[in-house]
Design a protein around this nucleic acid. Structure first.
Lengths: 154, 154
DNA sequence: TAACTATGGTTGCATGTGCAACCTTTTGTT
DNA sequence: AACAAAAGGTTGCACATGCAACCATAGTTA
């Protein structure tokens, strides 16, 4: 007596398509970054952006904002600190936690990433209509909600 | 004289949304896998599927089918070989290349992944209409084409 | 106040990744 | 045939990631 084998129609399932698109997207992001002479990873770039939006975040908050494990974020920060992009300062109120600040160098690099990101985005969305972009984002939000049960935000 | 800073509207750019969705998707994939008692990574699972579809592929082909660097694939295979999921056989025609085969254990594990994947897919797509799924896949194909210049396939 | 629990960060361990250098075998060119 | 160039795999290196164990500090409770 065999257990029924679930049939899975991958070709019409969105998961694999989304995953593959991300892979391609990440590859070309890396490509455009190095073409612009930027020596930092996409992940470091995301951290720079979060700090640019709000300087002095705790590692804690930064980890959850960027959806990473705290250990992963800690190591990311160590590398960024070694490159003088950021500094850690022990918090006054809570000596366990560190506040993270952009350095001048970090801010400089952040601004240098803008044209690369812009270029990447324009390549990616070149022939998409506003409706299509809006529509796909709505669907992706739904998918995220299906997993997390929470309203999605970036 | 300052260079104009490109304005980027992340909130309405599809890139970050796709990337974040993948992150969440991967996280819950891993979750469902371990809940089903499956001790293998998503990446290994993809290799199992490709071999199930077509046994005896060369490492070469497997790397390009799964969009990985040949070195990355080689290491993935080493781990899978250590777990007795696959075996490598030197090719007769071209002694440089290896052909990769599923073992019985590999086939067994592959079948055990089906229900987990099914469950994951159903969670993800629970309230999406067929039109929505079709539409998002079309848009993702467009995006892939914008980067690669080639018609997308899984 | 003392003791237990929770929280923020760091580190060890295992996994996955791309690039570049290297070895071996093929293939292509004089 | 002899040399050069290309192709398949492996390995070193640097990076990113999550989990679990651990340390130090903070908060709670007996």
């Amino acid at each position: 007596m065999k257990v029924a084998e679930p049939k899975i129609d991958f070709e019409n399932s969105i998961g694999p398509w989304i995953g593959k698109t991300t892979k391609i997207m990440d590859y070309y992001m890396q490509e455009v970054m190095s073409r612009h002479g930027l020596d930092l990873s996409k992940e470091q770039m995301i951290v720079l952006k979060k700090l640019h939006d709000q300087d002095g975040l705790k590692q804690n908050e930064l980890a959850s904002l960027t959806y990473r494990d705290k250990s992963s974020l800690a190591r990311l920060l160590s590398k960024m600190e070694a490159k003088n992009f950021i500094v850690r300062k022990q918090s006054e109120e809570d000596k366990r936690s560190n506040e993270v600040f952009l350095t001048d160098e970090g801010r400089r690099i952040f601004h240098r990433t803008r044209p690369a990101i812009k270029e990447h985005l324009e390549t990616m969305e070149q022939d998409l209509t506003e409706e299509e972009k809006h529509h796909i984002i709505q669907i992706l939000k739904k998918v995220q909600f299906n997993f997390t049960g929470k309203t999605a935000n970036l």
